[in-house]
Nucleic acid binder design. Structure first.
Lengths: 318, 318
DNA sequence: GGATTTATACTCAATGTGAGCATAATAAAG
DNA sequence: CTTTATTATGCTCACATTGAGTATAAATCC
């Protein structure tokens, strides 16, 4: 059947497997293979014969290939336009018979991250997203000037610039990671735009480390989703060990949000929502020892729990 | 290649195309074909050769087949386990060569809904989700007693019952449409569970009108997503005509949420967020005439706008 | 022992929210 | 033409939440 032939595709499951190492959110990557030395997200094919659902299929190859214990898994988005890669200037189309691929992106959270060299820090790929030490320099020094030139007098472009980058007079919104990346892609400000043939010349500035195919876009989607979810579901605890101090929870939250939070108010929220309970033990470190807590609903699904409202503060406009 | 053969699938794009008729949210359905007379959602294949992205493909066949103007489109979820249908007791497997289908669900919003017979009211499929006239009788008379018996002394089941149905002593959460449907499915309380072979006997009670395959699940996903989105993005206006009264906005919101809102507080939110602006004209109906408004950001994307916080009230526990 | 570091308790003003009363402007009823 | 029903809109007020800070406690480092 001709119809069936043109409609048949392969399914790739790509995963942004996220963990936190120290005070840096990290993401599992696979070694670079192309001439451009860009890392990529782990992915594997979905075999509908073997696995009843895609999530089962995903968990299967993650266990097989990484031996990781991923608890929380969430589907992000399905991209049907990965064909981009064949439009790029990098050479001939290598796929036989123009086999199409649909990629389903997943977000997974892992408490541990062994083998440090395989985990890549979020903010090396997105340096403009980490505001913990104030407004990142790269914004004023590179990104914003370029984007302003790009938008020119185009009313729509200027409006988007204001919406997603908060330039010139709106607040920065930490959830717009994907929107910002896509705007930069459109403006030819990231390497992937060059690889996909959207712009002819390789950009001079290094706006974060690029990734293979649309993997940086998937990571951006994961970051957006995780930052948003953190605010209404207690997913942080999927990244915490079984016992932790309240400061550790806060540091992990801050790492993901890329922003500093008010300590006392953060703890007030944790207390009000009754998400943690004391273990009785104390941590030993520098300074006054902190009480060790554990997540109250560890046995249950963390889905549909009250969630932790994050005290974001008012003056987020630097 | 054997590997490629088992991994190759067909992509179906299924759409929950939602509109509001009077005070009822409705959803475009296609006539029933099976012996069970169950309606289904419109769907069509995705041809990766023809359409660059899946959203383009979706818009294409919606335009071709329904001549509808859908503005807002959002991807919901990708289901790889539609194969359920072949497990059912309804007879032999009809698909030649066991061709697998992955279905990508979409939510679309339409301002108009012509041809009334093709649009099906949400709450005929989900009668327990409409709380505008108080707690629906079907809950206490059928669903809850059955679910309580089903959970028995199983701690996990009782916990889920409390979480998603608020029984016995938690508040009803209007966003848990999908969770409630899935719980009822698992408990064998909806017709689809019978069709899929999860339970042997056809259920006696009619817990809402069933749909084909997993379409009611997709509709539940759409309802959950829309109810949630309404609270932080101004998507209601995708369902409103170009000029409207504030009461019309409220009635539409209430229809989707399945709950009654406090009038004055609802308007306070609209005013504060500056989402509407007066047209100068007045509506003529019974009672005092209301001012006609229009959406302030009609030309722009309604994505990433401040959004309208909905005054939900406190005593939502009947 | 004093400086440093971290934890935790408590306060307070500003804002947001739920709930309600009061009043205005129209059409329909008598 | 007055009353009544109906819808729209203005306003208040108590209460909860939040942002931002001060004060104090308990440990380590030197």
């Amino acid at each position: 059947m001709d119809k069936n032939h043109t409609a048949s595709v392969l399914i790739d499951l790509s995963a942004a497997i996220v963990s936190v190492r120290g005070d840096q959110p990290v993401c599992l990557t696979v070694p670079d293979v192309s001439e451009y030395q860009t890392p990529g997200l782990p992915f594997g094919p979905f075999y509908p014969d073997r696995h009843r659902t895609m999530e089962i299929g995903l968990r299967q190859w993650v266990i097989e290939q990484t031996a990781l214990d991923i608890g929380y898994v969430e589907q992000l988005y399905t991209f049907g336009d990965r064909g981009r890669r064949s439009e790029g200037p990098e050479g001939a189309d290598n796929q036989n018979e123009e086999e199409h691929i649909v990629s389903v992106g997943y977000l997974a959270l892992s408490k541990q991250c062994p083998q440090p060299d395989q985990w890549s820090e979020w903010y090396k790929h997105f340096p403009w997203e980490d505001w913990r030490n104030g407004r990142p320099n790269i914004l004023n020094q590179q990104i914003i000037p370029y984007l302003e030139a790009w938008s020119g007098s185009d009313e729509f472009r200027r409006h988007r610039l204001q919406q997603v980058f908060g330039f010139p007079d709106k607040a920065w919104n930490d959830e717009f990671v994907l929107d910002r990346y896509e705007l930069m892609y459109e403006a030819g400000l990231v390497w992937e735009a060059y690889a996909d043939g959207r712009q002819k010349e390789k950009i001079s500035a290094q706006n974060g480390i690029a990734m293979q195919l649309d993997h940086r876009r998937i990571l951006a989607t994961a970051m957006s989703r995780l930052r948003a979810k953190l605010k209404y579901r207690p997913v942080v605890f999927e990244l915490m060990p079984s016992a932790f101090t309240l400061t550790q929870v806060q540091k992990t939250t801050e790492a993901i949000l890329g922003a500093i939070l008010h300590k006392q108010n953060f703890r007030r929220q944790l207390a009000k929502n009754e998400l943690v309970e004391p273990t009785g033990q104390m941590s030993k470190a520098r300074g006054r020892p902190a009480e060790l807590f554990k997540f109250k609903h560890d046995e249950n699904q963390s889905t549909n729990l009250p969630g932790l409202r994050i005290p974001l503060g008012k003056s987020r406009n630097f």
